[in-house]
Design a protein around this nucleic acid. Structure first.
Length: 757
DNA sequence: CGGATCGAC
DNA sequence: CTATGTCGATCCG
């Protein structure tokens, strides 16, 4: 959305509020200047709980900056030199991998929600308009922006800035429809285009361009929608901008092709075959179809395309030609805040280091590699080189699903619990619609002082129904209520999230193991932990002898849990208030369940492991089902292998193979004498799948320094390998005489890049 | 794993 | 009166 335009100047200590107000004020136009805007905002804000919290957050950021500056002081020129060598070696690699062959387009509808509302209500056309409510605005039109009215600003403050502002409530259904119309156009240019919200999308038009050169003119001819003509020209004048005829942007619409000025058909236009022409065509068609304008960016990668579309909005487009030089020129004076992924906080931190533009980001690359995490400074480096993804990766599987609501203060436990239940119910509904179950439930609370807390709990088996989610969430909530007692918990927001879904891969693995399990006992020899004995015997034995933390203990815990959870849903529903479960209560509940089971009432029982409702109330049958579920659960544990393989993919190539082998076939060089279950010994010999369990306490050898690493986790092992790799790299760089040929100079280290100064 | 934070729409 | 809702990523303990 073009109205999400990043604003903010958070470098000054009182910058908290500035981010809401800054606005270029076109000279001579009706509106307010920055100073006035900030004054009004400040008056409306100061003293509020919200403001106090903003100040608090701001101080936290300042502390982070202080820490960073202290770290910076400790850096020696030696360290900086080493870092420079290391980073610049990487720069060379990155530079070699630069790929300019794709054409990525970013389409961004102008002030989308506001534009739709204005289109549908001519009354609004000449007025300042915002979409949202008195408490929060989603967007504003350009007229309103001149008063400092922007997205993410509460409506009541916007009203103070601009008393004539019309606030239109959100109407997502309508925006969805319009969005769909736009997408129908986009899909013709890239069937795999990637929508980002309702008003933005990325397209990879590389293939389209290849085909298009062979297209006859007729395929590139489009007609004006004469019916909407008047409407349309009014539209491109949105907010009083005296902009022009369609496509009077940076380049003339018709380009140089003589044939493009086709007069034979009065009300049609023919577009050329270049990327610019394609994008003009897209914008033309969008406007003809929806009466709304869009801005666009064309560039060799996603990041650049996004920044590019920002350049000439509204109703304009911009292209970075696929040349290294053009990319670097574009970036040279570009403020880092314009870069997607760089927000208010990062901007402020970098500003503390004197970094404002992308070229400055490049100049400080060595320093940044010492002050920031690997992921961060690598990202900074990519940004300053103008590197980004050259294709559109379809987003992966969903990782979490959540729901949250803001309300006026709620401070009684009773209301809080019923609210929590309601959230769980609504969440369960959408969760089940997508057929998802997750193992982690997170409760989010925001108190009346705007302080946010999250509390999570991971359970053994995936949850998805209202009851299951609430069962976990209510305890999290209870703990928070208890923690603050005797004060009441005064909240203004509550949210519930479920995460930890089985990935598609895991689902398949899971399914497969169930299938083979059901198919025949013989075929699942790998599951059998002790040859010659049945699985059941194995499980029972281990559940008695295995050390704490094992799956079998968890199973037992699950059974315990089941006694609480087995109560039929109505009971669970009633037991909710103030049930911090005194042991007496617990006994009562348990007793109820026992009675229930003994009686022959036909109630629905929920399996504590798989959480499926069981029609039978025969205890034996139920227990058998629970055992089966546990077996299933066990195969899930095995399938965790794929997780670790994913982690391994983060390792360097050299390290990965070694590590992979060792993880799959761990060689136990030494081990503590405690906590070894027999199971793993057997498992190691019989199957690599089971042996994975044993990896936790095995010894890995660093593929770089060859020393034995006793790891408790792959993460720390990875860290060690990384350190070793870095050491090796520095050594290599300092020892090699032929590389680099130039001497590195701290002050002026532009040996690789091309930024001036 | 859990919690906080950042950033995007 | 009155400062969103949802999601993914990352960092740290």
């Amino acid at each position: 959305m073009d109205d999400t335009e990043k604003v903010g100047n958070s470098s000054c200590s009182d910058g908290v509020l500035l981010r809401m107000g800054l606005n270029d004020n076109k000279a001579g136009m009706q509106g307010l200047d920055k100073e006035k805007i900030n004054k009004i905002i400040m008056e409306a804000t100061k003293g509020s709980r919200f403001y106090e919290n903003e100040l608090k957050k701001d101080q936290q950021v300042n502390q982070r900056i202080e820490k960073m500056m202290q770290l910076k002081e400790k850096i020696t020129t030696q360290q900086l030199l080493k870092a420079q060598l290391q980073v610049d070696k990487l720069v060379i690699e990155l530079e070699q991998s630069r790929n300019l062959s794709s054409t990525i387009v970013h389409i961004d509808m102008d002030a989308f929600y506001a534009a739709v509302e204005m289109r549908d209500c001519p009354e609004l056309k000449e007025k300042p308009v915002a979409v949202g409510s008195m408490s929060m605005l989603s967007t504003s039109n350009y007229h309103a922006r001149r008063f400092g009215v922007r997205a993410a600003m509460p409506g009541f403050i916007a009203k103070k800035l601009c008393p004539h502002l019309t606030i239109v409530p959100l109407n997502f259904e309508k925006y969805g429809k319009v969005s769909k119309e736009v997408r129908e156009i986009l899909t013709e240019y890239d069937p795999n285009f990637m929508p980002m919200g309702l008003d933005e999308a990325y397209l990879n038009i590389t293939e389209h361009l290849e085909e298009r050169v062979r297209w006859p003119e007729d395929k590139r001819r489009f007609f004006f929608n004469t019916k909407n003509d008047t409407n349309m020209s009014a539209k491109s004048n949105e907010g009083g901008y005296s902009s022009p005829v369609l496509f009077e942007d940076n380049t003339p619409l018709m380009g140089n092709h003589p044939k493009q000025r086709d007069q034979s058909v009065e009300n049609s236009v023919i577009f050329g075959t270049s990327a610019e022409e394609v994008v003009k065509e897209i914008r033309f068609r969008i406007e003809q179809k929806t009466q709304l304008t869009a801005s666009a960016g064309i560039a060799p990668n996603v990041m650049l395309a996004k920044m590019c579309s920002d350049r000439n909005k509204p109703n304009g487009q911009c292209r970075i030609s696929p040349e290294r030089r053009a990319v670097l020129d574009f970036l040279r004076d570009l403020p880092i805040r314009k870069v997607p992924g760089i927000g208010k906080v990062t901007e402020k931190m970098l500003k503390a280091l004197g970094i404002v533009t992308c070229s400055e980001l490049y100049q400080q690359r060595a320093l940044l590699s010492l002050l920031f995490s690997e992921a961060s400074w690598r990202n900074f480096l990519d940004i300053s080189l103008g590197l980004g993804s050259t294709h559109l990766e379809k987003d992966g599987e969903r990782k979490s699903m959540s729901i949250e609501r803001t309300f006026s203060e709620i401070n009684t436990a009773e209301d809080q619990y019923s609210l929590c239940r309601e959230l769980c119910r609504d969440l369960a509904q959408v969760l089940q619609k997508e057929g998802l179950k997750g193992k982690t439930v997170t409760l989010k609370l925001k108190n009346v002082n705007f302080e946010v807390k999250t509390r999570a709990s991971t359970v053994l088996s995936s949850v998805s129904t209202e009851e299951e989610i609430f069962y976990v969430a209510k305890d999290l909530l209870g703990t928070e209520i208890d923690n603050i007692a005797p004060h009441p918990l005064r909240i203004r927001l509550m949210g519930v999230r479920v995460s930890g879904f089985l990935s598609e891969e895991e689902k398949k693995y899971h399914q497969k193991s169930i299938m083979s399990f059901l198919k025949s006992e013989k075929e699942i020899g790998f599951l059998r932990l002790q040859p010659g004995k049945s699985n059941e015997e194995c499980f029972t034995k281990n559940s008695e002898t295995s050390p704490r933390g094992s799956f079998f203990d968890k199973k037992r815990a699950a059974r315990q849990l089941s006694r609480e959870n087995l109560s039929p849903s109505e009971t669970v529903g009633k037991q909710l208030f103030h049930d911090r479960k005194s042991s007496a209560d617990f006994v009562k509940e348990t007793k109820n369940v026992t009675e229930l089971q003994n009686s022959n009432m036909s109630k629905i029982i929920t399996c504590p492991v798989c959480f499926e409702e069981q029609s039978s109330n025969n205890l034996e049958e139920l227990n058998r089902h629970i055992d089966d579920s546990c077996t299933e659960k066990f195969s899930q544990v095995i399938s965790d292998k794929s997780h670790r393989e994913k982690q391994l993919s983060n390792l360097s190539d050299i390290a990965r193979n070694v590590c992979m082998k060792q993880c799959l076939f761990p060689k136990r060089i030494s081990k503590d004498n405690e906590d070894h279950f027999e199971k793993t010994e057997h498992a190691e010999e019989t199957s690599s799948c089971c042996s994975f369990e044993a990896t936790e306490d095995s010894v890995l050898v660093c593929p770089v320094c060859n020393s034995k690493q006793k790891t408790t986790s792959l993460v720390s092992f990875n860290r060690h390998v990384d350190v070793c790799l870095n050491k090796g790299l520095i050594k290599e760089l300092t020892e090699k005489k032929d590389f680099p040929s130039k001497t590195y100079n701290m002050e002026n280290s532009n040996t690789v890049g091309e930024y001036a100064h």
